[in-house]
Nucleic acid binder design. Structure first.
Lengths: 197, 197
DNA sequence: TGTACAGATTAACAAAAGATAATTAACGCT
DNA sequence: AGCGTTAATTATCTTTTGTTAATCTGTACA
């Protein structure tokens, strides 16, 4: 399910867990492959899955009344995601999640997975780690909206994930940054012509 | 420490916990009172506390090089908070947390509290609940930056916490919304003059 | 009552972003 | 090579926001 260097990475990260523990966790997960463009979670679904991306890229978007799509989330390899409307608020998803590339996922039923994690205190630290990690991600993104302007947010995104620009069309990045594609195009021009002037 | 209706609220929320369990949790917490204006966590502190607000209002802000303050977080009664730089990233706080009103807190050492929670699986659900709640809050805020413009964000804030406007100066609300106080003032004028036109 | 101070509003102008449409670029397909 | 489709850029114009500074308002306090 996971290759050996990932496994040893996680074993090192969670010293209280051994190979058997990891195996127990992965036993409730199954692999799923998506082709580029394929919808993983459609709007209004109640998908209680926790999903790990082995390879590829998932985009979640909101469809506005006027037909425009607004990207609300991008996740790539080695990241977790879930339909947060469903998991956090117990509501049908307002968003559609789909693959931007051919993607390999490892998915588990959220409630089953949590049950396994909650049964033995030895998993507590690992669970906290992931939840706090997700919380940290989310807080950092929030912070960049408060502290940075669109141009700075774009530069920060490039810095965090340089190849994102090759993998995701700019128009999707733009709405994720809270601006329009036209505006992002102008920002890119500003940056390339006179960075610092 | 907590009044009886709060206690029965939490007992009802977490059916697997009894009064004694709650008492065990609260035994690691202590009450602290802050006067209006008092600093709770100064910049660069490494404060590993998890804090519950019984009464009052806490604001966290970032101080820019030019001396301007940018509000990054507001928490009020019945909400939890922590220095997220310290707890999530194990770094000194870039922000200062202070009381906007006379405030009564219930604070616990984060690591001790987690240890208690992690010792017995019966606390798992409660812990998940709080972490997922914080994650949900954070995701919702993030979403409003992506999906809404400043005016809509302001209206949403008013809707979520109507009395916030009486309790926090507009200039602090403005920076929390990612705009300047001048711009918020114009938005307020637009709203009051012609709501829908 | 007056004064000092902080916050809010207003004004004036520059910069950036939104909206819409036209143009250009890139890319797959036959 | 040529066609069609989609994304990206550019152009034009409107709206909003940022910036700086002035003015107004309320409030605490001497």
């Amino acid at each position: 399910m996971l290759d050996s260097n990932k496994i040893s990475y996680y074993l090192q990260l969670f010293k209280e867990l051994d190979l058997e523990d990891l195996f127990r966790l992965f036993s409730v997960a199954r692999e799923k492959k998506l082709s580029i463009g394929e919808v993983y979670i459609p709007v209004n679904a109640n998908t209680r899955k926790l999903t790990y991306i082995k390879e590829g890229l998932i985009r979640a978007f909101h469809l506005k009344e006027n037909g425009e799509e607004v990207t609300v989330l991008l996740r790539w390899e080695d990241q977790f995601f879930a339909s947060y409307d469903t998991i956090l608020f117990d509501k049908p998803s307002r968003f559609s999640y789909h693959a931007m590339e051919d993607t390999i996922l490892l998915e588990a039923d959220y409630d089953v997975f949590m049950e396994v994690l909650n049964k033995d205190p030895k998993f507590s630290k690992a669970k906290d780690f992931f939840l706090l990690n997700m919380l940290g991600d989310s807080m950092m993104s929030l912070e960049s909206f408060i502290l940075l302007n669109p141009e700075e947010r774009y530069l920060k995104l490039l810095q965090e994930k340089p190849n994102i620009i090759q993998r995701v069309p700019n128009k999707y990045l733009a709405t994720l940054l809270g601006i329009t594609p036209v505006s992002l195009s102008r920002i890119r021009k500003r940056i390339s012509s006179g960075p610092k002037r």
